[in-house]
Every structure is written in C-alpha cells, then in structure tokens.
Amino acid sequence: MNTRPNFPQPLDIADHDALWQWIQRHYRAEGEWRTLWLNGLPLGRLNLQWHEQIVKDWQGGLEIRADGLALNADNWLAMGDSLQYMAAKWSRSGLLKGWRNECFDVFDTEGKPLFVLERAAFRPLGLQSHAVHVNGLACADEQWQFWIGRRSPYKAVAPDKLDNLVGGGITAGESALEALVRESQEEAGLPSDLFCHAETVSRLHSVRSVPRGLHDEILHVFDVVLPPGFEPENQDGEVASFSLFTVADLTAAMHKDLLMDDSLLVTLDAFRRFGLLLPDHPLTQWLRSRQVGGQ
C-alpha cells in the first residue's frame, strides 16, 4: 500500500467557490483594532472594549497613542507579572472567561520568548499564540480518508464541533514537537513512535475576530498516516468520538459549518497540498498567503 496519501481528482468548482465564501466570512478581523505596545514592541491588538479596560486597570507605565496603547514595565519579567495580575483580576470579577491555569509564551517579532502569560488573556490582548494540529489519514475501503474527532459536548468552547485528529496549544517552554507528542497521546492515544521522523508540513497564520477579542495564532501542522486497523482513542475526556471521513463527506461537513474554524483551515491546507484544490483558484491563493516561513 502507498504510504503517501493520494487523491484522484480535485474538488469541483462549486465546492471551491462555496469554501472560499466561507473563508471570507470567517477569517477577518472586523471592527477597529489598536496596536498594543509592550516595552516598545508592537505585540498585540486591542478592540475598543479591552483598550478601555486596560486604561482603567493597568498599574504600570501607560501611554495612549494615536495608533494604540503603550504599556511599560522595568523588564520583561515585570511586564509578564503585571499582565498576569491584571488578567487574574479580570477573571475574579467575571470579565475574563475561560481561565485555565495554563501559560503560553509571548514571543518578540524574531521568535524569542519574552515572558509567560495565562492563555485566557491572549485573545483580549490580541497576543500571538502557537498551536499544533494533526491531519490523521488512513487508507480504508481502498481510498484515503481523514480521521476526524468530535469535541466533547462538555467543552466550554464549541462543544460537539468536528475537529482535526489532534489540536492543542503549545504551552510555555514547550517545542512544537513536544506539544505534538503530548497532545497526540492525550487526545487520540497515539504512540510517540509515530512521530520519530515528524516534520512540520505547514505553518499557518490564523487571524480572526472572536467574542473574547482577537484570535492570532500560528498553527504548526503535521500529517500522520495511521497504521491499518488502528483506531484513535481519547484519553483526557475532551473528544467524544473519532470517525473516518471521505473527502466527499468532509467537504459536505465543511459546507454545513460543522468543523472548528482552525480545523477547517488546516484541512483545507491539506487539500491544497494533496492536489484537491485548483492551483489558480482564489481559495488556494489565499491559503498560500497564510503560510509562515516559506512552507
């Protein structure tokens, strides 16, 4: 059996057009956004609500600029501590939802980690986070198919939505490969030896407005071909079930808006790489534009 996924023909033009319309509706940052400067670096983006809340609650150096808001602290450790204190205050008051007691790294524009911060604060501040996503593939019934997870009905965000085989945030101090192995075991029970030679196949820049603020995330994408007969099994209670989807079934699910937004983006990028999208269609060109680092 060919171990590289192979698909016979691209989607038809009607599918391309409909999915392109979906992307244009979902992947945009609506409203007025102001730059958040931290110790002189433009690291976040704020809507008016969070801009005003920071002006009210920030206890360090603050400058309101024409293009945004500048916060200053003695050093990056102090900056992280002050932002964490402010975010915790928001959480206690009920203003900030989804506190996880889990921190992400905040990086500078060159990719150097500056400080850590509770992940729930990233959307309000418009800070860029990082996550891993895994396209799970298997050859079944003589055709290549995608393993898709259904999120638990008890998830706080998007319960029951369809998701990639694996998807999760890269926590503070963790590499993409370390997050890949951890999340794959927790979410799908995948053995670590599946990733002995794992390489990132795409890095996608996902930006869109969300109820909490701005979603700005780099998605580190991996493909994994699961052995014949292997079935993923969730270990942490966050996934209700896994199912194999043909390309036709998965495309139909996309049309019905059944997938998580970033999972749909990751899946469409896989479609692009596997020749299921027409090279000159605007959808394909937009997906190329979302690539980070020349992937």
Rank of each mutant, 00 (worst) to 15 (best):
L204F: 06
V157L: 10
W76Q: 08
N39A: 04
F230W: 13
N72K: 08
L127Y: 06
K161G: 04
L244F: 12
L258E: 15
E30D: 15
P113Q: 14
G168K: 13
D15C: 01
A14Y: 01
I218W: 08
S289C: 10
S82V: 02
V55T: 08
A188K: 11
M86V: 03
N101L: 11
V266H: 05
K112Y: 08
T109Y: 04
W58R: 04
Y27I: 03
E231K: 13
H215W: 06
G229L: 09
L180S: 00
P10V: 02
L226N: 03
A198T: 03
G31M: 11
E183D: 03
S202H: 11
F271D: 08
P113C: 09
L83Y: 03
L162S: 05
L71H: 13
W76E: 02
N72L: 06
I218V: 12
W20Q: 05
A70H: 15
D261L: 12
A248M: 02
E233D: 08
W76S: 00
D12K: 03
E52C: 13
G293A: 09
V132H: 07
A179H: 05
A270S: 13
E63S: 13
H255M: 12
L226K: 07
G126Q: 11
E142V: 07
V292H: 14
W58E: 00
H281G: 12
A172I: 07
G31F: 10
E52A: 15
L214W: 06
H205D: 04
L277Q: 04
N101Y: 14
E231H: 07
N6I: 10
K155R: 15
A18N: 03
S184P: 01
M1F: 09
T251D: 09
A78M: 02
E199R: 11
D141A: 12
L41R: 12
I170C: 04
E63F: 13
P232Y: 05
S82W: 01
M79N: 03
Q235M: 07
E52P: 06
P282M: 14
R182K: 09
V116N: 10
K256W: 08
F222H: 12
A120T: 09
E183Q: 14
E178D: 08
K89E: 06
W50L: 12
P232S: 05
T3P: 05
S192L: 01
M260K: 15
E233M: 06
V292R: 14
W144R: 14
V157T: 07
D160A: 02
A240C: 04
A240V: 04
W50I: 10
D81R: 00
G173K: 14
L214R: 08
S209M: 02
G189C: 05
A18D: 01
G169A: 15
F7R: 06
L194R: 07
V201F: 01
W286E: 05
A120L: 04
C139G: 00
A120F: 07
G149E: 09
K112D: 02
A176H: 09
K89S: 14
K112L: 04
L95R: 15
A73E: 07
M254Q: 10
S209G: 05
L204G: 01
I64S: 12
H51I: 05
C196G: 06
D141H: 15
A14I: 02
A176G: 03
E32W: 06
L219F: 07
L114W: 05
D236C: 14
E102M: 12
G294D: 13
A120G: 04
